[in-house]
């Protein structure tokens, strides 16, 4: 501490200075120094965020106002691209499909996940619980491409699904599930549900393991049945985990791309086309960068509109 003070701001950030000329000035200098240091610490992350998130986002908004093929000159078209997104059935239907997928990607995994996690919780100490947990989480580990190919074999007209159906006397309902207009979207949804179920189960199970066993004991003393326990203790206790599951799966449904791309590529006849795939197709195959960007912006707003209320709901409980 014997060395002279060279820069009061820097020094202030570390230890209190030897002399105190004026309390107010010191506090202000100190605060400013802290702010500077804070910004410096945040700077790398902020720079990365700006370059890789905010900047491309801004560019997307900009592109959405132009008609542009990605190479040549562009023409300002104002909000025309947005008008097309909402009036062209080919584009708008993709958004409807995405909402339909929420049923399979979100509702099914969360509801089933709750039931499965609750069952596993009750047998937590047995070896069966470990096996069940592993089996259910495996879809998360398998590369999605491999899973997509496997499912397209399973769902083919001579695939395992139809073989089983025929074996149990349901030969009448067999079909090429991914190639049929009525069943392609649900079939893709089933693949998504299968993938996301493991994630939801694991998250919910983690949440349930934090619940104080005394609560269950107390409930049992009050002669509560398993159902009552489930709805009065388990579900309210894992509300936050449910919130996370719903958020992640709703985003997965609305922004889905990979499962569709591998299994149906949007076919047959656009019946499984989702915004993510349509954006890719518009931008890279049709070279309509403006329309693709407009759809991307709409998709982003939709995702935020769906996810922010969910976030708020779960935050209020904490």
């Amino acid at each position: 501490m014997a060395r002279p003070i060279l820069d009061p701001a820097v020094e202030a950030a570390g230890s209190p200075p030897a002399t105190v000329p004026n309390g107010w000035t010191v506090r202000r200098t100190r605060r400013r120094a802290r702010q500077t240091a804070g910004w410096l610490f945040a700077a790398p992350a902020l720079a990365a965020y700006t370059i890789f998130v905010l900047w491309p986002m801004g560019l997307t908004v900009q592109y959405s106002l132009y008609q542009w093929n990605g190479i040549g000159a562009s023409t300002w078209v104002g909000l025309d691209n947005y008008r097309r997104v909402f009036t062209d059935p080919e584009l708008f239907d993709t958004i409807l499909h995405a909402f339909e997928l929420i049923l399979y990607f979100c509702v099914v995994p969360v509801v089933l996940g709750l039931a499965i996690a609750n069952t596993i919780r009750r047998i937590a100490t047995t070896r069966l619980a470990l096996v069940a947990r592993t089996v259910i989480f495996i879809p998360q580990v398998i590369p999605l491409v491999a899973a997509g190919i496997t499912w397209s074999w399973l769902l083919a007209s001579d695939g395992l699904v139809n073989q089983v159906l025929s074996a149990v006397g349901l030969g009448g309902v067999t079909r090429a599930w991914l190639g049929d207009f009525g069943t392609a979207l649900p079939a893709v949804g089933v693949i998504g549900a299968w993938v996301l179920l493991g994630l939801c189960t694991l998250l919910l199970l983690a949440g349930m393991s934090k619940i104080d066993p005394a609560l269950y004991e107390a409930a049992r003393i009050d002669s509560a049945g398993p159902l009552r326990e489930f709805f009065s203790i388990t579900v309210p206790s894992v509300r936050q985990e449910i919130g996370v599951c719903v958020t992640v799966t709703v985003i997965a449904a609305l922004a889905s791309f990979d499962i569709i791309y591998i299994s149906t590529q949007g076919g047959p006849g656009n019946s499984t086309m989702v915004p993510g795939l349509e954006i890719y197709r518009q931008a890279f195959f049709n070279r309509e960068v403006g329309v693709a960007s407009a759809l991307a912006v709409v998709l982003m707003v939709l995702v935020l509109a769906c996810v922010l209320p969910i976030q708020r709901l779960t935050r209020e409980t904490s």
Partner: peptide, 20 residues
């Protein structure tokens, strides 16, 4: 800040690809 950033982009730089 976000609006300002996008605004600058949209207004300041002209159309994309025009400099090719």
């Amino acid at each position: 800040g976000f609006v300002a950033l996008t605004g600058t982009l949209a207004a300041g730089c002209g159309g994309p690809g025009s400099d090719s």
